[in-house]
Amino acid sequence: MPALPKIPWESIGPEHRLDYKRAFMLIDLNRCTGCHSCSVSCKTEHEVPLGNFRMRVRYLERPDRPTLAFLPLLCMQCQDAPCLKACPTEAIGRLDDGRVVINDEKCCGNKACIAACPYGAISINEETSKAEKCDFCTHRTEIGLAPACVASCPTDAIRFGDLDDPQDPVTQEAQAKQARPFREDADTAPSVLYVDHERWMEPKSNLGVRLSPEDDDIIYEQNNLSSKII
């Protein structure tokens, strides 16, 4: 095996890990501060055009107290992915570790996957007219680096691990904190689990990653931020 590149400032643990039986992400909503570093690093990493997002953080007004909850949303890498079935050209496939990826060469941009995704995680790249979504940064994890959002999160709210490995500390944390998938009713066996995700967030977050400056989204409303945070 060729020696791994030494990149000391970015690693996912004491050892670079390359093999995952089932890659997954654990998002601890108690730790998320809504700083957007995950969505910004994702856009930078993948050169996502203006207006598009592979990952974004929703600001939701809490029903129980006058403050905000932050909800990072991305592709859930479903084990029973509706997008995979909907794509007419088989452009969407699954890697051995369960990740759902889009093959640009085969994508015809007919948007069937967008309509099929219950999480609103797929969008059309307006520069290429092809579908795009989060793939847990395959190009980074295959050389032992953490996905860009994980590496950039200042509070460790987003962590990356192997759901089928009981020794994996992230898996153990997910079990200890009883992490649950988002929108369990969609019944798609997602590979993104949330800690302290509450039911009231689900209907409020159905705008997914497809938002525009015209939408009621705080990332475009920095001027009104103080009025939102009461």
């Binding site: 079935k85 909907a86 007419p88 050209t89 088989e90 015809c108 941009g109 007919n110 069937a112 007219s129």
Partner: peptide, 26 residues
């Protein structure tokens, strides 16, 4: 005209995904 590339219509016809309603529809 709704596709990324007009030639992709041929791709929908030739790349068979038996689970896709759109592939059968085309």
């Amino acid at each position: 005209s709704d596709l990324a590339n007009p030639r992709d219509f041929i791709l929908i016809l030739t790349q068979a995904n038996p689970h896709s309603a759109i592939a059968w529809g085309a």
